[in-house]
Amino acid sequence: MSNTMDGIDFAAIVDKERASKQRNWLALTAAVIISAVWVVPFYYLAISIFKTTEEYSLNHPLSLPSGLAPVVENAVTAWTHAKMGAGLWNSALYGFLGAGIAVFIAALAAYGLSRIDFKRKNLWFMLIFSGTIFPLQMYLIPLFFFYQKVGILNTHFGMVLFYSAICIPFPVLVLRNYMNGIPRDMDEAARMDGASEFTIFRRIVLPNCWGPITATFLLQFTWIWNDLLFSTVLANRAEVRSIMNALQVFQGSYSSTGPNVVLTAAVIASAPSIMMFMLLRKHFMEGMRVSGS
């Protein structure tokens, strides 16, 4: 054995390593082309909101707009026609409360399922989780009649109740798995430190679950925000309808607005959930990791 480094050309080795990385050019080009195809609808959306109805109908749909100014008028038209202010407010209410309550209850359930010993734990879990197996549409008609009978059709309360309930099972699945990965030693240490069960939940387990909590909150928020079916059936009055429901005024034979206005409305309607994602994306990505360590 010899310890000398003579005869080894380190520069050549470095070059070779670098060259091997550059061979990925081909893959990169292919990726760029595929991405471009995928981006076309967004391009269409982005340019159309800057066109007047006239400009839109005269030119090719993918041609560039002549100026940026029409976007203001489009927005105003969209906002007033669809009463978007009320819609956005309602959707925000449903999204924040519905997803928030659902994730909090799910976290409590997940803590119980992962930490507390009781009989038939798996059965309870399967029972909760079975909520996600059936097609959601199945609930629609019974729910409508039930809501009508109880008198919570077309109410904020009814909507928040529905969204909270429907959004519980999935976070339970995610949070239970995540909490199972958080070492039990930690709760035991806290218990010895004098913490009650709820203190352990609130001060030890919950703060270590921010990742998956944010992730599931975001997913459920987006689902609620984008839901059209249930909000159309259960809350159709202008004062309680959601933003997605509000956009429906642009549909149908009486609608007089052009695609440019519809698209502007769509951009406004989707902005909040995109902003939420941007804001919480760090936690979201953390939450996507499976293990709890």
Binding site: D185, M186, E188, A189, A190, I204, N208
Partner: peptide, 8 residues
């Protein structure tokens, strides 16, 4: 504890 069980 063996794992130290510190609150991360």
């Amino acid at each position: 504890f063996q794992s130290y069980a510190l609150y991360p």
